[in-house]
Design a protein around this nucleic acid. Structure first.
Lengths: 202, 202
DNA sequence: CCTAACTCGTACATTCCCATACGAGTAAAC
DNA sequence: GTTTACTCGTATGGGAATGTACGAGTTAGG
């Protein structure tokens, strides 16, 4: 799966260039999803031909940047304790996740415009699966709702997280409040509903 | 405010062309947010110069298309009964809103990439204000939560609606289920939370 | 009917951005 | 220390999309 196995060999020099390019791509695309290849080249402080020597197309570069961001996120999220009450576990997961999502929201947007939907799903498989298992467990524990499909809950959490990123970027939501607001919102979404909602057919 | 007052006069011919163009722009951009001017011209069955005779730039055209979609939406939503229990009113509003949002989701996306954020807010002022008043009323009734800022609740509803549109477009969510799922989700978001959430600091 | 507004087709200028060609320098790796 | 992979600058091709030029035809409207 990793790029190491496929390539026969690579000089340490090249390795460093690739790292610089991917890092610059992540940073640049996370600021401006419409960033051009030249922008990334300049940010990386590297020659244009060097970039195209390692990434044949812009699409490949965007994919590499997104994959790198997700891999970094995985390293952080792998340390989150997901045992015990599923609600508490979800809170911990969200508190570790939201800032990651906020940082890479623009990058994800850039990737969505370039990569096919199926590839995007593949790349997000790991975090999606983690949340999936947590929600299923919470359902078995009886603390999460079962009247809505799991995929909907998972994706809605994503939409809320990306929405929060947008709110922060627009200056409407303070980063200090974001964690609390996000946790409260998502917990409400997945919790078992109390009544049937309102006076219903009163 | 309306375009009639500004223009000194316009031939009935032109009026019809503009209507055809705006309608075609709405339909085309709602299918593909990246639709080109030529695509819209072809869909409208009108000459390219005719379009540029009425809309000086593509941005103007997108704005007109979005404004038209929102105006049509307003006509529908104005008839929704928002009296009585705020929860029931919200359900009625959502059931009338979600399909409108789903239809124009791509159009909104197209506009977001072209129009400044402030202009987008202005155009969405009417539906946002309607939801704002409803939420504030529900708070006074004690049926909606007060621990989260109103703007957050409003915008989160938008994000959920757009997310639902995306799920439908991707074929994961059935249109027949959409209403129920959306209502259940949004009601959960705005409802007064029961416990403090989970075992908390147990 | 006759004037002015409107329409249309096609070609074109402009602008952006992706991707490539080329040749010369530089640093890694055995 | 020599080979080979890698790097770099610049110039250039190629495609796509926006907006304009021009001239002729057509329709509304008084």
């Amino acid at each position: 799966m990793s790029a190491d196995t496929a390539r026969p060999r690579r000089r340490a020099d090249a390795e460093r260039s690739i790292a610089r390019i991917v890092t610059a791509a992540r940073a640049t695309l996370s600021t401006d999803p419409h960033a051009t290849v030249d922008d990334i080249v300049k940010a990386a402080g590297v020659g244009r031909m060097t970039l195209y020597g390692h990434f044949r197309t812009r699409q490949e570069l965007v994919e590499a940047a997104l994959a790198d961001a997700l891999r970094a996120g995985e390293e952080t999220l792998a340390h989150v304790d997901l045992t015990g009450d599923a609600r508490d576990a979800l809170t911990r997961l969200l508190e570790s996740s939201w800032s990651l999502v906020a940082e890479s929201a623009a990058l994800v947007e850039a990737a969505q415009g370039v990569l096919p939907a199926g590839r995007m799903r593949e790349l997000h498989a790991a975090p999606a699966e983690r949340l999936n298992e947590l929600i299923e467990r919470g359902r078995r524990q009886g603390v999460f709702r079962t009247d809505l499909p799991v995929f909907w809950l998972i994706n809605t959490v994503h939409y809320v997280l990306h929405g929060a990123a947008e709110e922060i970027r627009a200056g409407r939501l303070d980063s200090a409040d974001a964690g609390r607001v996000i946790v409260a919102t998502v917990q409400a979404i997945v919790a078992v509903p109390v009544g049937t909602g309102g006076t219903a057919s009163a």
